[in-house]
């Protein structure tokens, strides 16, 4: 905010006039639909006829009937999807962050060809997720895939592996691809933060003969921490709502089903808008809770500054 902005009569009214179209649009595509989704979660609405429904209270979330529990919260598949999503988010974000920092440190060195390597980093980021999913599906193909071929040639595996069909490997495969696809985002943001670290800091440490690893943990990391915290929350929120990569790579199989895939299948696949909306609302609640906890733990406000 500039210190002394000049005054125009009715300036504040102009400001609201400029804001209004944007606020109306966001209201129509975000706030109102979110409210309606929450409302639908309390009904038995179906996709075939969205206009006729009955309020059924919290039955889509949890209900006890005839000695059995029903509802999303008692649905073993939803619980599986919750566990899958948490595992996916935790593992992929951790790997992306560590790998992203390492690559950013490498690119922060001055060497000939650095710009070429940095351009290469942008490539996976620029490839549409659906396209990456298909490329990797092909590479991970159990019979004709190049990954199996390579590992067989290197003698690391004895027989071809069904990377996507084998439930215990499917999640690992999806995470591998997500890490490939999104590490560049981390690299770009961390690299930008690294470039704001004054070079004298490194010079001083070098003169004092401090080991580079210690320099990283005691000088660099604290300085880039705020930017890193913002990067991680972006990645975490993205990972928690993962849909496209999983959907294209493994479809709706239990082994990799995420909360988004589950909710969409109920809503669109099975046309059960009430139940699907309850699942969607639960995803919103989980994401909101994780955000609040993260912001509290990292003591970060949403503008990227530490309190």
């Amino acid at each position: 905010m500039p210190a002394a902005t000049p005054e125009i009569p009715g300036r504040v009214r102009w400001a609201w006039l400029f804001l209004a179209p944007m606020l109306v649009t966001l209201g129509a595509v975000a706030l109102w639909p979110l409210g309606r989704t929450m409302f639908f979660s309390l009904t038995n609405a179906t996709l075939i006829d969205l206009d006729h429904y009955r309020l059924i209270g919290l039955g889509n979330y949890l209900a006890f009937d005839d000695g059995l529990w029903f509802g999303v919260l008692a649905d073993p598949l939803w619980l599986k999807a919750l566990a899958n999503t948490l595992v996916f988010a935790a593992v992929s974000v951790t790997l992306e962050t560590v790998l992203g920092i390492l690559i950013a440190l490498l690119l922060n060195l001055r060497f000939p060809g650095r710009t070429l390597v940095r351009a290469a980093v942008l490539v996976p980021w620029a490839i549409p997720t659906v396209v990456s999913a298909r490329m990797w599906n092909w590479m991970l193909n159990d019979q004709f895939g190049v990954i199996n071929d390579l590992l067989l040639r290197l003698g690391l595996i004895a027989a071809p592996v069904a990377w996507l069909a084998e439930p215990s490997l499917a999640m690992a495969s999806v995470i591998l691809v997500d890490v490939w696809k999104t590490t560049p985002f981390v690299v770009l943001l961390v690299l930008a933060a690294l470039q704001t670290v004054p070079r004298d800091c490194y010079e001083a440490a070098r003169v004092d003969g401090v080991h580079p690893v210690r320099v990283f943990f005691q000088v660099t990391l604290p300085l880039i921490r705020p930017a890193l915290a913002v990067t991680v929350i972006f990645r975490l929120l993205d990972a928690m709502r993962m849909f496209d990569l999983v959907y294209v790579m493994t479809g709706t199989t239990d082994a990799t089903m995420t909360l988004s895939v589950f909710a969409r299948r109920e809503m669109v696949g099975f046309q059960d808008v009430g139940y699907g909306s309850a699942a969607s609302t639960m995803l919103f609640v989980v994401v909101a809770a994780i955000t609040v906890i993260y912001l509290a733990v990292s003591r970060l406000d949403l503008e990227g500054r530490r309190r």
Binding site: W32, L34, F243, F284, T291
Partner: peptide
């Protein structure tokens, strides 16, 4: 921060 799926039925 909204997951896209959370607004799907409303949208």
């Amino acid at each position: 921060m909204f997951p896209q799926v959370a607004v799907l039925s409303g949208l």
